[in-house]
Design a protein around this nucleic acid. Structure first.
Lengths: 203, 203
DNA sequence: TCCTGGATAGAGCGCTCGTTCTAGTGAGGC
DNA sequence: GCCTCACTAGAACGAGCGCTCTATCCAGGA
């Protein structure tokens, strides 16, 4: 018999965390790495150290409801990563370049597996699963706002800040995909440097 | 009985095209729109006006071999789109901005469905299906080279041209995803303008 | 002590997946 | 006329999918 109310077979870092939270985290990472369609619910349950019954207990809406929760979790996680990277410097150009470095390092350390937590799922479900698409949309909007705040705080006007945030987010997202495909930090680092130059050119 | 050697049920534009080519085109479009895992071979055959037997006749390696061919087809298709956009102007900054406009228009006209033909498949199969990942890698490299040639021809040094090409491709790829998720041309257009400014700042 | 209800557990359902297999068709060489 | 072989056609298979269902467990209230 297994231990009751808690499974020890999960990673040590996640001991003591509630089942629902473990399921969401496992789902987020798996969707990030192998997409929505490519990830089975049984695998998610297994990775979370939970059973199928528990998953459907917490997410009666099934895979779709679980995906929305996973995207929202990835949203917060990635926003924290951006904030941490941006906090590295007061100068917005340096901050963005540092941000790219942070993303590149995290990507390499995960053996190029953990890129943006929503891109894969977003592209697979575009126009076919409205709740998921909306969660992805809110995530992108959220990250863009994190960047825009930094630019406004650095003295940029509202419009400039918004445009820069849109450009920088797109560039970082695209560079992350390139880095994953090429298995190299170079696209992210190069893009980070270019974005820093663009920001200085607008100051 | 169906007509022999050719099926009329396909789109008129594809009448007279060989079965293999029709299958590759259908696969490319479906992978682009709903990803690798989310697309079944039976659906591909149906969309191509072919039968399962024909698909496995031309692609004995199954779904994986078909995906490689589809990625390579998308590679050429997207490279042509980039070239056409870049040909709009001799000035590299204007050319890139025009490129973004072309991509935005095509995206809107497909109701935000037809984005980059490899991103979705690339992210789903990363590190798990080497042949597909390599095809994706070659596609990105190819597109970057299309941009680099334009920049070199415009007077940029080899290193500058390569860095700019890397940045612009990443930015356009990321902006295309944003435009699809937001269902708006704005991310692509804004990113195009920013890239033009970056290129001018480097001239 | 018994009851209640949130949480756990996993067998089993219908279905679709990728793939295999055999049968059949017809244009072109002899 | 007939043989050959590239190609078409689709039934069938095992595996795995998302999901449902019933049974069980156990902490806390009465």
């Amino acid at each position: 018999m297994k231990t009751k109310t808690q499974d020890v077979s999960t990673s040590p870092a996640e001991a003591g965390i509630g089942t629902r939270e473990r399921v969401v985290r496992a789902a987020s990472r798996l969707f990030q790495r192998q997409g929505y369609e490519g990830t089975g619910i049984k695998l998610i349950a297994q990775e979370a150290g939970a059973t199928l019954g528990s998953v459907y207990h917490f997410f009666p809406g099934g895979k779709e409801e679980l995906a929305v929760a996973a995207i929202q979790y990835g949203d917060r996680e990635f926003a924290d990563m951006l904030s941490a990277g941006l906090a590295g410097s007061d100068d917005p150009a340096d901050a963005v370049e540092n941000c790219a470095r942070v993303l590149a390092t995290a990507l390499r350390e995960s053996d190029w597996a953990d890129g943006c937590p929503v891109t894969a799922t977003a592209l697979e479900t575009l126009g076919r699963t409205p709740p998921i698409q909306q969660a992805c949309s809110e995530a992108l909007r959220n990250w863009q706002e994190v960047l825009a705040v930094k630019f406004r705080d650095s003295g940029f006007g509202d419009e400039d800040a918004e445009e820069l945030a849109c450009t920088v987010l797109s560039a970082l997202e695209g560079a992350e995909v390139s880095s994953q495909v090429f298995r190299s930090e170079e696209p992210l680092l190069t893009t980070g440097r270019s974005m820093a130059q663009l920001i200085r050119a607008r100051s």
